[in-house]
Simulated scan of single mutants.
Amino acid sequence: MTTSAQPEPDTFDRTLEELRAATARLVATARAATPDELGAASPLPGWSRAHVLSHVAQNALGLRNLATWARTGVRTPMYAGQEQRDADIDTGARQDAAALVRQVVDTAADLDADLTALPPEALAGTVEMRGGLRVPGSALAWLRLREIEVHHVDLDLGYGIADWDAAFARRAVEGLVDVWRSRDLLPPVRITATDTDLDTVSGSGATSVRGTTAHLLGWLLGRPGADVRLQGPAVDLPAL
Protein backbone atom coordinates (compact mmCIF):
# COMPACT_ATOMS: atom_id res chain seq x y z
CA MET A 1 0.00 0.00 0.00
CA THR A 2 1.42 3.38 -0.99
CA THR A 3 1.94 5.59 2.00
CA SER A 4 3.56 8.76 3.21
CA ALA A 5 6.33 9.74 5.58
CA GLN A 6 4.32 12.70 6.82
CA PRO A 7 4.00 12.01 10.60
CA GLU A 8 6.37 14.10 12.72
CA PRO A 9 8.22 12.67 15.74
CA ASP A 10 6.18 14.76 18.18
CA THR A 11 3.00 12.96 17.07
CA PHE A 12 4.48 9.49 17.60
CA ASP A 13 3.20 8.85 21.13
CA ARG A 14 -0.28 10.11 20.27
CA THR A 15 -0.36 7.93 17.16
CA LEU A 16 0.65 4.93 19.27
CA GLU A 17 -2.36 5.53 21.51
CA GLU A 18 -4.63 5.79 18.47
CA LEU A 19 -3.10 2.60 17.12
CA ARG A 20 -3.81 0.70 20.33
CA ALA A 21 -7.45 1.78 20.26
CA ALA A 22 -7.82 0.89 16.57
CA THR A 23 -6.20 -2.50 17.12
CA ALA A 24 -8.57 -3.25 19.99
CA ARG A 25 -11.53 -2.44 17.73
CA LEU A 26 -10.29 -4.73 14.96
CA VAL A 27 -9.56 -7.56 17.40
CA ALA A 28 -13.05 -7.24 18.90
CA THR A 29 -14.54 -7.56 15.41
CA ALA A 30 -12.38 -10.59 14.62
CA ARG A 31 -13.22 -12.32 17.89
CA ALA A 32 -16.94 -11.81 17.33
CA ALA A 33 -16.83 -13.40 13.86
CA THR A 34 -17.69 -17.05 13.34
CA PRO A 35 -15.29 -19.39 11.53
CA ASP A 36 -17.65 -19.39 8.56
CA GLU A 37 -17.64 -15.60 8.46
CA LEU A 38 -13.85 -15.49 8.53
CA GLY A 39 -13.69 -18.07 5.76
CA ALA A 40 -16.04 -16.10 3.52
CA ALA A 41 -14.86 -13.76 0.78
CA SER A 42 -13.76 -10.24 1.67
CA PRO A 43 -14.21 -7.23 -0.63
CA LEU A 44 -10.56 -7.66 -1.68
CA PRO A 45 -10.29 -9.79 -4.84
CA GLY A 46 -9.05 -13.30 -4.13
CA TRP A 47 -8.91 -12.84 -0.37
CA SER A 48 -11.16 -14.24 2.31
CA ARG A 49 -11.60 -12.38 5.58
CA ALA A 50 -9.06 -14.81 7.00
CA HIS A 51 -6.57 -13.59 4.38
CA VAL A 52 -7.19 -10.01 5.51
CA LEU A 53 -6.45 -10.94 9.13
CA SER A 54 -3.42 -12.99 8.13
CA HIS A 55 -2.12 -10.00 6.19
CA VAL A 56 -2.61 -7.80 9.26
CA ALA A 57 -0.47 -10.24 11.26
CA GLN A 58 2.21 -10.42 8.56
CA ASN A 59 2.24 -6.63 8.33
CA ALA A 60 3.05 -6.46 12.04
CA LEU A 61 5.99 -8.81 11.49
CA GLY A 62 7.17 -6.72 8.55
CA LEU A 63 6.98 -3.49 10.53
CA ARG A 64 8.90 -5.16 13.35
CA ASN A 65 11.69 -5.68 10.82
CA LEU A 66 11.59 -1.98 9.97
CA ALA A 67 11.64 -1.10 13.67
CA THR A 68 14.78 -3.22 13.99
CA TRP A 69 16.29 -1.38 11.03
CA ALA A 70 15.43 1.99 12.59
CA ARG A 71 16.87 0.97 15.96
CA THR A 72 20.09 -0.69 14.75
CA GLY A 73 20.79 1.02 11.45
CA VAL A 74 21.22 -2.43 9.88
CA ARG A 75 19.20 -2.87 6.70
CA THR A 76 16.35 -5.26 7.56
CA PRO A 77 13.82 -5.56 4.72
CA MET A 78 10.15 -5.60 5.60
CA TYR A 79 9.61 -8.94 3.82
CA ALA A 80 11.88 -11.62 2.35
CA GLY A 81 10.18 -11.10 -1.01
CA GLN A 82 6.78 -10.86 -2.65
CA GLU A 83 6.37 -14.61 -3.15
CA GLN A 84 7.28 -15.41 0.45
CA ARG A 85 4.97 -12.66 1.72
CA ASP A 86 2.06 -14.04 -0.30
CA ALA A 87 2.81 -17.61 0.82
CA ASP A 88 2.92 -16.57 4.47
CA ILE A 89 -0.45 -14.82 4.13
CA ASP A 90 -1.98 -17.93 2.53
CA THR A 91 -0.54 -20.18 5.23
CA GLY A 92 -1.85 -17.94 7.99
CA ALA A 93 -5.30 -17.79 6.43
CA ARG A 94 -5.57 -21.59 6.63
CA GLN A 95 -5.28 -21.60 10.43
CA ASP A 96 -8.37 -22.23 12.49
CA ALA A 97 -10.16 -19.05 13.52
CA ALA A 98 -8.95 -19.01 17.12
CA ALA A 99 -5.31 -19.48 16.12
CA LEU A 100 -5.57 -16.77 13.47
CA VAL A 101 -7.04 -14.23 15.85
CA ARG A 102 -4.41 -15.14 18.43
CA GLN A 103 -1.70 -14.50 15.83
CA VAL A 104 -3.17 -11.07 15.10
CA VAL A 105 -3.21 -10.26 18.81
CA ASP A 106 0.28 -11.57 19.54
CA THR A 107 1.99 -9.94 16.57
CA ALA A 108 0.28 -6.63 17.33
CA ALA A 109 1.48 -6.78 20.94
CA ASP A 110 5.04 -7.55 19.86
CA LEU A 111 5.03 -4.66 17.40
CA ASP A 112 3.64 -2.32 20.04
CA ALA A 113 6.50 -3.25 22.36
CA ASP A 114 9.06 -2.63 19.61
CA LEU A 115 7.59 0.74 18.66
CA THR A 116 7.29 1.87 22.27
CA ALA A 117 10.97 1.09 22.83
CA LEU A 118 12.29 3.06 19.85
CA PRO A 119 14.74 5.74 21.04
CA PRO A 120 14.74 9.27 19.57
CA GLU A 121 17.59 8.50 17.19
CA ALA A 122 15.61 5.58 15.74
CA LEU A 123 12.58 7.81 15.18
CA ALA A 124 14.82 10.18 13.24
CA GLY A 125 16.42 7.39 11.20
CA THR A 126 15.28 6.26 7.77
CA VAL A 127 13.97 2.88 6.63
CA GLU A 128 12.61 1.61 3.33
CA MET A 129 9.11 0.30 2.72
CA ARG A 130 8.30 -2.71 0.52
CA GLY A 131 7.62 -0.46 -2.48
CA GLY A 132 10.89 1.43 -2.08
CA LEU A 133 9.47 4.50 -0.33
CA ARG A 134 11.88 5.77 2.33
CA VAL A 135 10.28 6.89 5.59
CA PRO A 136 11.51 7.96 9.03
CA GLY A 137 11.22 5.62 11.98
CA SER A 138 8.68 8.05 13.40
CA ALA A 139 6.28 7.05 10.60
CA LEU A 140 6.01 3.40 11.63
CA ALA A 141 3.16 3.86 14.12
CA TRP A 142 1.19 5.82 11.53
CA LEU A 143 1.80 3.19 8.86
CA ARG A 144 0.42 0.53 11.18
CA LEU A 145 -2.56 2.67 12.20
CA ARG A 146 -3.54 3.17 8.59
CA GLU A 147 -3.13 -0.53 7.88
CA ILE A 148 -5.37 -1.47 10.82
CA GLU A 149 -8.10 1.04 9.99
CA VAL A 150 -8.24 0.25 6.28
CA HIS A 151 -8.24 -3.51 6.72
CA HIS A 152 -10.82 -3.33 9.49
CA VAL A 153 -13.15 -1.95 6.84
CA ASP A 154 -12.00 -4.70 4.45
CA LEU A 155 -13.31 -7.32 6.88
CA ASP A 156 -16.81 -6.10 5.99
CA LEU A 157 -18.17 -7.10 9.37
CA GLY A 158 -19.93 -3.92 10.43
CA TYR A 159 -17.04 -1.45 10.55
CA GLY A 160 -17.29 0.78 7.50
CA ILE A 161 -15.81 3.78 5.77
CA ALA A 162 -18.11 6.12 7.71
CA ASP A 163 -16.54 4.86 10.95
CA TRP A 164 -13.17 6.36 10.07
CA ASP A 165 -12.40 9.42 12.15
CA ALA A 166 -12.18 12.56 10.01
CA ALA A 167 -8.75 13.45 11.38
CA PHE A 168 -7.42 9.99 10.54
CA ALA A 169 -8.97 10.11 7.08
CA ARG A 170 -7.55 13.55 6.35
CA ARG A 171 -4.05 12.48 7.35
CA ALA A 172 -4.35 9.44 5.09
CA VAL A 173 -5.76 11.40 2.15
CA GLU A 174 -3.01 14.00 2.38
CA GLY A 175 -0.40 11.24 2.61
CA LEU A 176 -1.63 9.49 -0.52
CA VAL A 177 -1.90 12.75 -2.44
CA ASP A 178 1.61 13.82 -1.41
CA VAL A 179 3.20 10.54 -2.52
CA TRP A 180 1.30 10.34 -5.80
CA ARG A 181 2.05 13.98 -6.57
CA SER A 182 5.76 13.48 -5.83
CA ARG A 183 5.79 10.60 -8.33
CA ASP A 184 3.73 12.51 -10.91
CA LEU A 185 0.97 9.90 -10.63
CA LEU A 186 -1.92 12.06 -9.47
CA PRO A 187 -4.51 12.73 -12.21
CA PRO A 188 -5.92 16.25 -12.70
CA VAL A 189 -8.46 16.33 -9.88
CA ARG A 190 -9.74 18.69 -7.24
CA ILE A 191 -10.48 16.84 -4.00
CA THR A 192 -12.80 18.70 -1.65
CA ALA A 193 -14.12 17.47 1.70
CA THR A 194 -17.58 18.43 2.85
CA ASP A 195 -16.84 17.96 6.56
CA THR A 196 -13.33 19.44 6.91
CA ASP A 197 -11.37 22.19 5.16
CA LEU A 198 -9.47 19.65 3.04
CA ASP A 199 -9.26 21.04 -0.50
CA THR A 200 -6.41 20.02 -2.78
CA VAL A 201 -5.91 20.46 -6.52
CA SER A 202 -3.75 18.50 -8.94
CA GLY A 203 -2.92 19.93 -12.34
CA SER A 204 -5.92 21.51 -14.01
CA GLY A 205 -8.32 20.00 -11.49
CA ALA A 206 -10.51 19.03 -14.43
CA THR A 207 -12.41 16.49 -12.35
CA SER A 208 -14.03 17.54 -9.09
CA VAL A 209 -14.44 14.95 -6.34
CA ARG A 210 -16.49 15.87 -3.26
CA GLY A 211 -17.50 13.90 -0.20
CA THR A 212 -16.76 13.50 3.47
CA THR A 213 -13.08 13.09 4.25
CA ALA A 214 -13.61 9.42 5.10
CA HIS A 215 -15.40 8.70 1.84
CA LEU A 216 -12.75 10.59 -0.13
CA LEU A 217 -10.18 8.26 1.41
CA GLY A 218 -12.32 5.26 0.51
CA TRP A 219 -12.49 6.50 -3.08
CA LEU A 220 -8.74 7.06 -3.31
CA LEU A 221 -8.18 3.53 -1.98
CA GLY A 222 -10.65 2.07 -4.46
CA ARG A 223 -12.84 0.63 -1.70
CA PRO A 224 -16.44 -0.29 -2.50
CA GLY A 225 -19.07 1.83 -0.82
CA ALA A 226 -17.18 5.12 -1.10
CA ASP A 227 -19.88 7.75 -1.51
CA VAL A 228 -18.40 10.67 -3.44
CA ARG A 229 -19.67 13.02 -6.12
CA LEU A 230 -17.58 13.26 -9.29
CA GLN A 231 -17.95 15.97 -11.90
CA GLY A 232 -15.82 16.03 -15.03
CA PRO A 233 -13.84 13.47 -17.00
CA ALA A 234 -13.33 9.98 -15.57
CA VAL A 235 -9.99 9.52 -13.82
CA ASP A 236 -7.72 6.53 -13.33
CA LEU A 237 -6.19 6.42 -9.88
CA PRO A 238 -2.72 4.95 -9.29
CA ALA A 239 -2.54 1.31 -8.26
CA LEU A 240 -1.93 0.69 -4.57
Results as ranks from 00 to 15, higher is better:
residue 93 A to Y: 02
residue 57 A to V: 03
residue 129 M to T: 04
residue 114 D to M: 06
residue 221 L to Q: 05
residue 125 G to C: 12
residue 13 D to C: 01
residue 155 L to R: 05
residue 24 A to F: 10
residue 117 A to C: 04
residue 180 W to T: 08
residue 202 S to V: 04
residue 103 Q to T: 13
residue 210 R to L: 01
residue 224 P to S: 14
residue 115 L to R: 01
residue 215 H to V: 06
residue 209 V to P: 08
residue 20 R to E: 15
residue 17 E to P: 03
residue 214 A to V: 00
residue 143 L to F: 10
residue 160 G to V: 11
residue 73 G to Y: 14
residue 191 I to Q: 08
residue 81 G to S: 09
residue 117 A to H: 13
residue 65 N to D: 11
residue 85 R to V: 01
residue 168 F to S: 04
residue 5 A to H: 12
residue 211 G to E: 11
residue 173 V to F: 01
residue 212 T to L: 13
residue 173 V to M: 03
residue 27 V to T: 15
residue 210 R to N: 04
residue 74 V to A: 05
residue 56 V to S: 02
residue 215 H to Y: 08
residue 78 M to W: 11
residue 176 L to T: 01
residue 203 G to L: 06
residue 101 V to H: 02
residue 164 W to R: 13
residue 153 V to M: 10
residue 161 I to L: 15
residue 127 V to S: 05
residue 180 W to E: 00
residue 71 R to T: 01
residue 64 R to C: 11
residue 206 A to G: 06
residue 132 G to I: 13
residue 80 A to S: 03
residue 203 G to D: 05
residue 189 V to R: 12
residue 95 Q to W: 05
residue 118 L to Y: 06
residue 153 V to E: 01
residue 66 L to A: 05
residue 122 A to N: 03
residue 89 I to E: 02
residue 102 R to S: 00
residue 75 R to V: 15
residue 182 S to W: 07
residue 197 D to A: 09
residue 1 M to Q: 08
